[in-house]
Write a protein that binds this DNA or RNA. Structure first.
Lengths: 186, 186
DNA sequence: GGAAGCATGTAAAGTGTTACATGATTTT
DNA sequence: AAAATCATGTAACACTTTACATGCTTCC
């Protein structure tokens, strides 16, 4: 929130939208989180808000206080372990794939690969172009973070594709071992 | 939970310990989650438990019912988008690093790189050796998942190291541009 | 005899998601 | 005139973490 406000994104609605267009893949949010949090931050003097209506439609804009700027700086400078509380249901499924027969486990790997490919594409089509506009406004790091995210999904898709090839090779090897001769055309 | 029970890990305590030694980096849990969840799963007939004391010390062991096995299979087979609700505070800090002066932003990148290196090491020293025992018991995928995790942190550390070099080059370029001649030894 | 590990849980607080509810303005 | 977008919020539910609470068994 503080980071977005510092970049001049001043309303709850705009912050939610900006998150959807930028950090969504590694840090998402919702209106139900944004509005109460803005109120809380204001009560604690990290930010100050003022009414900023647009015609009849009410709107509230916020900006950082000195205390808020300091808090943002301290967070970015803090050596504390950044909590990569990184819950990856895809990896969890992979972990338990032994519960499936071979062909279905391979299908799971393919689905995970396709999922990584879709995320890669979404990143490159939706997030990266958006981030490419940032350097012109003096923000270098949004594009860098977007590139790290996009490259990650590319890497992951390739890793899973390699895994699938390996599993396919293993399956062939095992079949010819157990069944020896026989049906050459299946 | 179902996956762990299927692998013969039968008590809440053992499940929590197994998670700490295997899926922790992509799916962690706590005792406060495990015990109520086992009770809930039993009430819904996904699992059945029996008292299995060890001397005077009470213990309760569970195993999958048919319904539980089916549910595990359905989860692994489901095409539904695996919720990669992947919250990465490190990437979020990188995104907002423009709020710091150049040298401090570079220090942040270094910290993130070191963090990835530590996670890589932890994976290779703590998780991988554990996972290497699994194939002997007929489980291939725990090792595969561990390798994907370990390789990810290796990749990430390298990406961040490259980024740091680039930023260092840019900083030198920019300094020589703005300050032209002058202090050649700093 | 003490420390480490095994074993089970509850309470409270914090965090996050989904659905609901409302209405104005701008674009097509 | 309708649809999309702007704009703000609440309620209920689900999930997660941290701290607390207890006691047995095994290893050193």
């Amino acid at each position: 929130m503080l980071g977005m406000l510092r970049a001049g994104i001043g309303t709850g609605y705009a912050i939610k939208r900006a998150v959807d267009q930028s950090t969504r893949f590694f840090w998402s949010t919702s209106f139900a989180q944004v509005y109460p949090e803005l109120a809380g931050l204001e009560k604690q003097d990290y930010i100050v808000g003022h009414d900023d209506p647009h015609g009849e439609r009410p709107r509230r804009s916020y900006r950082l206080t000195r205390k808020g700027e300091d808090a943002l700086g301290n967070w970015l400078r803090s050596p504390s372990v950044p909590s990569f509380a990184f819950r990856d249901e895809g990896l969890l499924r992979l972990f338990f794939a032994d519960a499936l027969p071979d062909e279905e486990a391979m299908a799971l790997v393919q689905r995970l690969r396709e999922h990584a490919e879709r995320a890669d594409l979404a990143f490159r089509e939706e997030i990266l172009p958006m981030a490419e506009g940032a350097p012109a406004h003096g923000y270098r790091f949004p594009l860098i973070a977007a590139r790290l995210g996009a490259d990650y999904y590319t890497w992951r898709a390739r890793w899973l594709a390699n895994l699938h090839s390996e599993l396919a090779r293993d399956a062939v090897a095992r079949r010819s071992k157990t069944k020896r001769a026989g049906q050459a055309g299946t």
